[in-house]
């Protein structure tokens, strides 16, 4: 009896969902198609079928004299991996320091981190450039890596995770068993935190991989540049003269690795977004 309205609602829901799915996937579909087609094919019109120029485009991109794509990939990988490691390790360390120990400044420290939880780094960009110039780190990758040590949001995730899955008795047991405090952290806490570390490492990696604003200010030499800056360079180059196959290929190189990792780990990532610090 009551089935009809619910049926109609289900149909509407599916239509909207399919539309949104189309919207999300369509652009990437064109991207994938176009990166396999030659410049002439792309200019001559739109096609749903892939071409045969994938290898050619790829070759053109990595051997472009003006765009140091290979070193861009390398730089991006270095910055992102190091940032991910530093952000997760030191956030876990900070969270552990505030979770497992009692000291006078514990509460003020916690409140302070909570206050800067969503503070954007752009507001201090001017002073940041200034200070790293003075420290001689302009045009190096360090200023893109080292600030990851202070990642308030990653800290907060780690802290919530510890509250739900790291009983203090475990730390005390380790103390009695003969661990010093660093050993307790590295041999007991880190293995227990593995799921949280993995999820946060992925997010930190992606964030760093996609980061554009600060790297664009810091890196001025071609050989130091990361992928997002190369894309910006491509954009400011005279677009009409460009080989469109190459343009699509560079975009593909920048985003497809992330998509592949995402699809492989989507279950954990989506759960990580949804559950935050909650275990299980």
């Amino acid at each position: 009896m009551d089935k009809k309205p619910s049926n109609i609602r289900t149909i509407i829901a599916y239509i909207v969902l399919i539309l949104l799915t189309f919207l999300c996937l369509f652009f990437f579909y064109i991207l994938i198609i176009n990166c396999t087609r030659s410049h002439q094919q792309i200019q001559s019109g739109f096609s749903f079928l892939p071409g045969k120029s994938f290898a050619q485009n790829f070759n053109n991109v990595i051997h472009d004299a003006k765009l140091p794509v290979l070193s861009g990939i390398k730089n991006s990988l270095i910055v992102s991996s190091c940032s991910a490691i530093l952000a997760t390790y030191f956030s876990a360390l900070t969270a552990y320091g505030l979770y497992a120990y009692n000291f006078k400044l514990k509460k003020p420290a916690f409140i302070f981190i909570m206050l800067i939880l969503v503070m954007p780094t752009q507001v201090s960009a001017m002073g940041f450039i200034n200070i790293i110039t003075k420290m001689g780190m302009i045009n190096t990758l360090y200023p893109l890596i080292l600030p990851s040590i202070a990642a308030p949001a990653v800290f907060y995730f780690m802290y919530s995770y510890m509250q739900s899955s790291l009983p203090l008795e475990l730390i005390e047991a380790a103390r009695i068993d003969g661990c010093n405090e660093f050993k307790t952290f590295n041999r007991i806490v880190i293995p227990i935190m593995k799921p949280a570390l993995a999820v946060q490492a992925i997010f930190a990696f992606v964030q760093s991989w996609n980061n554009f604003f600060i790297p664009a200010l810091v890196l001025q030499e071609n050989s130091k540049r990361t992928l997002p800056i190369l894309i910006a360079m491509l954009r400011s180059a005279d677009f009409l003269k460009f080989d469109m196959g190459k343009v699509y290929m560079l975009i593909t190189v920048a985003i497809v690795p992330i998509i592949i990792v995402y699809i492989a780990l989507s279950r954990y990532i989506v759960a990580g977004v949804a559950l935050g610090g909650v275990k299980e």
């Binding site: 799915t21 991989w209 996609n210 985003i255 699809i263 989507s266 989506v270």
Partner: peptide
């Protein structure tokens, strides 16, 4: 869920270029 979350991970600059 997997599909609709995906664009969030895309490099914004590459997405804009696309």
């Amino acid at each position: 869920k997997v599909v609709i979350y995906m664009p969030n991970l895309i490099m914004a600059s590459a997405f804009a270029m696309l």
